[in-house]
């Protein structure tokens, strides 16, 4: 993860730490891919916390390569489950893990 100035965040960056708002609620979850609206929101919010120090936030190192990373993780998942794909219960477990991976990249 790397620390960057808020004015330098760009679309497609991925939050590496939760952003907590002033009333101590999670305003934005880590793993969220930033779009224009979210960037506006971050700039607007008055925030305190670990994910937000001064004018900085934490983003993932290579969010630009996200799409590639997702693809890679999903193909590794398929490889791990290669031998037991005929089993219904195991397919269920695989799907659960697949959702967790996607969610970790801010997809649902």
């Amino acid at each position: 993860m790397k620390k960057i100035l808020i004015e330098n965040v760009k679309k497609g960056d991925v939050l590496a730490k939760d952003i907590i708002s002033g009333n101590n609620l999670t305003a934005l979850k880590k793993g969220v891919t930033l779009d224009e609206n979210i960037i506006k929101r971050i700039k607007r919010l008055t925030l305190i916390n670990s994910g937000f120090e001064g004018n900085y936030i934490f983003i993932e190192e290579n969010s630009a390569g996200n799409e590639k990373n997702i693809e890679k993780e999903l193909s590794l998942l398929a490889k791990r489950f290669e031998d037991i794909d005929g089993d219904g219960f195991m397919r269920g477990i695989k799907e659960i893990i697949k959702s967790a991976i996607l969610k970790n990249y801010g997809r649902n």
Binding site: E73, F89, I93, I97
Partner: peptide, 27 residues
């Protein structure tokens, strides 16, 4: 199964039946 770290097996096996029974595991 989640692919976290490495312990010497790339491929996973079927979930252990005894474990499933003892912990009463469902999806």
């Amino acid at each position: 199964a989640m692919g976290i770290g490495y312990s010497g097996n790339t491929y996973i096996e079927k979930i252990n039946t005894d474990t499933v029974n003892i912990l009463n595991i469902d999806l």
